[in-house]
Design a protein around this nucleic acid. Structure first.
Lengths: 209, 209
DNA sequence: AAAAAACTGTTGCAAAAACAACAAAAAAAT
DNA sequence: ATTTTTTTGTTGTTTTTGCAACAGTTTTTT
C-alpha cells in the first residue's frame, strides 16, 4: 500500500457540502478540545498544530504533531475524565471539521468530497495506525538517549538524508519524547561530545553508520 | 460508534474463501514475524498472544497483547530494519490470515466473510487506533507509579470493577509498561504499603476514590 | 526600537529507575 | 511425582533522570 494523503482529493471539498465546516485559526488558538464523544474528525488543510495533554502535575505532553493533510479528532480517542486533550495551532491553520458517521454512512447529498473521503477512509485510518505504532516504538525505548536516536533515525529516513531539521523547538521535543528538558539537553550534549551527532540550531546531522 | 468486534461475523468465514488461511498454533509458537511489507492481516480467533520486540540490548518489550477477535499484522507497521517484531502464542491459538488488499478491493469470489469484513474495515481499524492511543497515554506517563496506576485504572474501567485480574505475569507487565521489573516490584510494594492498592497474586483491587 | 516572552544551554543536587544478584515459591514439563 | 523452568519478591549499588534555578540568546509583541 502506498502512502496516501488527503491532499489528493481535498480540493473536491470546494464542491461543498453543508455538513462540512471549514474554519481558520490563528497561531496559538485552540482548534478543538477532546471532551465528549461527538465523533468529530478534523483535517488540517494547512498550518501546523499539536495535540497536547497536561497531567495533574502540570507536565505537558505533545501527544501528536500535525502538519498539512493530517487527520485527527476525538473519534480516535477513548474519552475519559482524567485526561484533558486539546489541539493547539502552532501556526495559522485551516481546518475542516466532519462527523465520523457522515463518512461511514455515505453522505446523503452525494457530494464528491464525502464520497472520496469515505472510499479512502480505511486507508486514511490505517495510515494513522502506522504512525501511532512508530510513536509507541519510540516511547517504549528505555533511555533518553535511545529515544533521541530513535527519533532522529525516523526523521532521517523520512527526509532521505543524514541531515534534517527538527520540526520542534527543543523544549517541545522533550515534551514529545516525554522526558525532562534539561536531562534531554544533557544527553544531546553527550551525543555531540561522543561524536554521534552534529547539531546547529535545530538542524541535526547523524554521524554514525 | 459502538464497540465492534470481529466476533459478530467471524462465523461467516466458514462459507470459506480460498484466500483465507486458517492455522492453529500451540503455546509458545511464533505466529508471525513482521519482516517484509506483505500487508498481512491476522485475526486471533481464539487464544492469547503477544507482539514482542527485542532491542539491541536484549530488552524485551510487549508491544501489544492480543485476545480473541483482536486484529494484528504487519500491515499496521512501518517495517524498518532496526526492529524485529514477532507474535508469540501465549496459549494455544487459532488464527486467520488475510491479505489487506483483498479486503480493500472486495474479494472476487464474493464470499460473505470478505464482504462483511470489508464493510467494517474502517471501523475495525478505528477501534485499533483508540487502543493504540490509550497505550500511548500510558507510555507517556512520567513515572512507574503513574504507569501502574494508569494501567490499573484502565483495567478497572474495562471490567466495571475495582477488582480485576492482571492479564499478564508481573514479569510481562514490566515489559508491557517498558520499565525494569525490580523497580516496578518496588513501586508495587509502595503502592500497597501506602494503601493505594491491594494485591493477591495477580488480582488487584483499587482502594482509592 | 524597546520590552516582553520564549527558548537554549548549563549546573548542583535529589529522586527515581536500572542493574545485578539471589532465595523462595509456583508453574510447567517430563 | 520429581525435576526443571519460570516467576516472584527482595535488596544493595550504580546510573540515569528529574527538579530547580539562572544567565544568555533569540524570537515575538507592542
Amino acid at each position: 500500500m502506498d502512502f496516501l494523503s488527503v491532499s489528493s482529493f481535498i480540493k473536491d471539498y470546494e464542491d461543498h457540502c453543508s455538513k462540512v465546516q471549514h474554519k481558520h485559526f490563528r497561531k496559538n488558538e485552540t482548534i478543538t478540545t477532546y471532551i465528549a464523544k461527538r465523533n468529530q474528525v478534523c483535517i488540517l488543510v494547512s498550518g501546523e498544530a499539536d495535540l497536547i495533554r497536561y497531567d495533574y502535575n502540570g507536565n505537558k505532553t505533545i501527544v501528536e504533531h500535525f502538519t498539512s493533510n493530517d487527520i485527527f479528532g476525538e473519534v480516535f480517542y477513548m474519552i475519559t475524565t482524567n485526561n484533558e486533550l486539546f489541539v493547539r495551532a502552532k501556526q495559522d491553520c485551516d481546518v475542516i471539521f466532519l462527523v465520523y458517521d457522515n463518512l461511514k454512512n455515505k453522505c446523503k447529498q452525494n457530494c464528491k468530497f464525502h464520497q472520496t473521503l469515505s472510499d479512502n477512509l480505511a486507508e486514511l485510518i490505517l495510515n494513522k495506525v502506522t504512525i501511532l505504532n512508530s510513536r509507541i516504538e519510540l516511547l517504549t525505548k528505555r533511555s533518553t538517549r535511545d529515544k533521541l536516536l530513535g527519533y532522529f533515525s525516523m526523521l532521517s529516513t523520512r527526509s532521505f538524508s543524514k541531515s534534517f531539521k527538527l520540526p520542534f523547538s527543543l523544549t517541545d521535543l522533550a515534551d514529545y519524547l516525554s522526558v525532562d528538558r534539561s536531562a534531554m539537553m544533557r544527553e544531546l550534549k553527550s551525543l555531540r561530545d561522543e561524536g554521534f551527532i552534529e547539531k546547529n540550531g535545530n538542524m541535526i546531522t547523524l554521524l554514525y553508520k
